[in-house]
Design a protein around this nucleic acid. Structure first.
Lengths: 340, 340
DNA sequence: CTGAAAGCGCTAACAT
DNA sequence: ATGTTAGCGCTTTCAG
């Protein structure tokens, strides 16, 4: 238990004035004489007075705290989004409580409950990979708590969200493969119920069509989003009678796994198999060969999500539903530079 | 602004009983008749009652919140320590507010102030790379707020801390280099005032001595802890008349930078120059060649720091000062396997 | 067995 | 220009 911080009462007692006088003096209320004002402010400074946020929160019914639920804190992708959120939110004097669903639906539900109990003023969520039902977000509507989704989203007609243009991005990657000579372009996709999976598949197919390539169901494999699932998915592709000559991984974790597995099987990257990832994890440029990747504007994504949330906490009355779509950029490195 | 959550008062009004009765019923106070108890609890459940933490906090003078200050949220090293902290702390029903010093002393000071204003019950800190004065931690002593340091520490006789055995680890790395044939073993160290720098240098020198190698001042270069500083430090080593045949990087960021720079200059790893990093960032095994690294038990470090803090928040009276030293393990991969 | 009252720290009418 | 009071949601004496 820590020492009791100084309260208005303490200051009041010391100066033989009332608590309300102190309260007013500290906010330069015109009613208080300048001299008293100064005296009180000096003492407050001296004693390191800072208003008790619990008392303020109780009074104003607000905590200046928001909650964030990510599938996993450790991945660079999420931690840099969190950083982007923090950046904006702290400017508004808000604090961030971060929780992790560990890619589990059950845990995601628990996170929501915990954050509500904590009385956060808003929540920013990226769905867990397991999340295929969405009714647990009803409570937020019921309690009129602003909710912003990012990246992996749902119920986008009811809640604001920030995503990238997944369709376009996937289309570009596919075309890039074609343009550099690949013809059997495979895609390791994520769990089927996620928007990022669906949209990237859509873009992938769109890209194939534009290049005049047929869609080959065998070249599309679904995978969970962790490293070892990526390895298994890659093995499936490599065990085909006719293996692919390009692999588009739904994210960089999958792409890293694919690279390792492809190399382990003695294939050359990009000569035999070109590889492109998605998200541009910090380390994409360190691996060998450097991994081409779709740059995911993580910082901007965090910033935007936080900005939307801050707006909604202010003008609570009119919920200005918004969908922000950020654009991505394909960074071509060696892993996909077949012709260069 | 969110909807007002149900309060005890609301429940009381609905059942025509007093607030205190409701309060007691919810904690199964023996004074309340079983039937009333049940009725009240059912209603509370139905209405989704959850106690207002602000009111409780105000009353009990505690927030069930702790603060964490890391040099940077984005690095895998820190995010996994945060994860370790979260794990333990959430079991105790505590929340974590994460702040980042961005490796800046000024920002670190501001973080402390903010967290104090928020009335956190304890703080866990890893010093910023700039931090070479330590008086800003006095406030915590003054206010009797538990403080735990991890990894980059100071004032270890006054505050508990969790570190790894840096001396021993550096000694092992140095010996490993010698055992695999290296004789001009360089060390890229961190800022001189940090304990991790000092201890690892100590271990490095100790290792050299044990191997009968002289300490060559030119082979020890100090560097800031970011990637581009690591590149510069490596350039310095590579521009020597007689270049080193092994480089021990103070952390994996530096080691990654060294690898890139060494390769860029046409040297072979490990044949020309062996490299070992420190911390085992997730991606150490993805780079080419896979980077040997001293495994830093990040999860355990987070767990331990949190455990110490939780203990101290409970038994505040007697501050049980502790120094936990975790052991590390050298993972030998290709980047240092000269003779194998 | 249940209710009334005080108090945690603060603000904002409402007095004086 | 300053003090008094009530109330934010909750627990805990103290009275019945």
């Amino acid at each position: 238990m820590s020492k009791k911080p100084v309260s208005l009462k303490d200051l009041a007692k010391e100066l033989n004035v009332s608590v309300s006088t102190v309260s007013r003096a500290l906010k330069n209320h015109p009613d208080i004489s300048a001299s008293l004002c100064k005296k009180i402010q000096d003492l407050a400074q001296l004693k390191n007075y800072s208003p008790n946020p619990l008392a303020m929160g109780l009074l104003r019914r607000q905590t200046r705290t928001i909650g964030v639920i990510v599938p996993d804190i450790v991945t660079h992708f999420y931690s840099s989004i969190i950083y982007g959120i923090e950046e904006v939110v702290s400017e508004h004097g808000y604090y961030v409580v971060i929780t992790s669903s560990n890619e589990s639906l059950e845990k995601e539900k628990r996170c929501i409950k915990n954050l509500l109990n904590l009385r956060v003023e808003g929540i920013i969520v990226c769905l867990s990979q397991e999340t295929n039902t969405f009714s647990h977000f009803d409570v937020l509507h019921d309690n009129e708590i602003p909710l912003i989704f990012f990246d992996r989203v749902c119920r986008t007609d009811e809640f604001s969200s920030v995503i990238v243009d997944n369709i376009e991005a996937a289309r570009q990657i596919t075309k890039h493969f074609f343009d550099t000579g690949s013809r059997r372009i495979a895609h390791i996709a994520g769990p089927p119920h996620l928007n990022i999976t669906q949209d990237r598949i859509k873009g992938y197919k769109q890209g194939l069509a534009e290049c005049g390539l047929p869609f080959t169901p065998d070249l599309l494999v679904y995978s969970k989003l962790d490293h070892s699932s990526g390895t298994i998915a890659t093995q499936k592709l490599l065990s085909m009678k006719q293996i692919p000559d390009a692999i588009f991984g739904v994210n960089d974790t999958i792409a890293f796994a694919a690279m390792q597995e492809v190399k382990r099987n003695g294939y050359k990257i990009p000569e035999d198999i070109a590889i492109v990832g998605f998200a541009d994890e910090l380390h994409a440029s360190y691996v060998e060969p450097p991994l081409s990747s779709m740059i995911h504007p993580t910082l901007a994504m965090g910033n935007q999500a936080a900005k939307l949330l801050m707006e909604q906490t202010k003008n609570s009355n009119s919920f200005p539903m918004q969908q922000v779509i950020l654009s991505t950029e394909l960074i071509i490195r060696k892993s996909s530079s077949k012709l260069f």
